[in-house]
């Protein structure tokens, strides 16, 4: 039976390698056909911020890759509202990541779900395995 895997992302991108490493592990693990979801809280919300342009700091912009997650069957990206608010951000500051629903004539649907801290705690409790980055 498929297990529920949660990738917990709490670090901003580019300053450390956590965000990129998490994304690479997610893409590899997606091959194992488990129920994978991603959580973005604390500084991790910046990983899916719009308009990332790291060229001048000499890093590759890997943010477009989050748009490929739908192709890999990953359609749940949970973002904590309190973490956004604490940082002066709103949902409009996030990339509009979508997936195509195969069971609904390939209609594009949003992958990003902004949820409360209480809901985030429940989602963590529901997982079989959590990977922290």
């Amino acid at each position: 039976m498929a297990k529920k895997f949660l990738y917990l992302n709490r670090k901003a991108p580019y300053g450390t390698v956590y965000a990129l490493e998490s994304l690479e592990v997610v893409l590899i693990a997606a091959a194992f056909e488990q129920e994978v979801s991603l959580a973005f809280l604390d500084d991790g919300v910046y990983q899916i911020a719009k308009g990332q342009t790291p060229k001048a700091v000499g890093m590759k912009n890997f943010s477009p890759t989050y748009n490929a997650l739908g192709d890999y069957g990953i359609t749940k990206l949970y973002v904590e509202r309190e973490s956004l608010v604490e940082r002066g951000l709103t949902e409009d500051d996030l990339m509009p990541i979508v997936y195509e629903d195969e069971d609904d004539d390939y209609t594009e649907k949003p992958s990003v779900q902004v949820i409360s801290r209480t809901e985030m705690a429940k989602i963590m409790a529901e997982q079989d395995v959590t990977f922290s980055f």
Binding site: N61, A68, D71
Partner: peptide
């Protein structure tokens, strides 16, 4: 160009089909 990754073969197969 669009996603900055080479797709896994399963993803490639599906995307080519589409």
């Amino acid at each position: 160009e669009e996603y900055q990754i080479a797709p896994a073969v399963r993803v490639l197969t599906k995307a080519v089909g589409k």
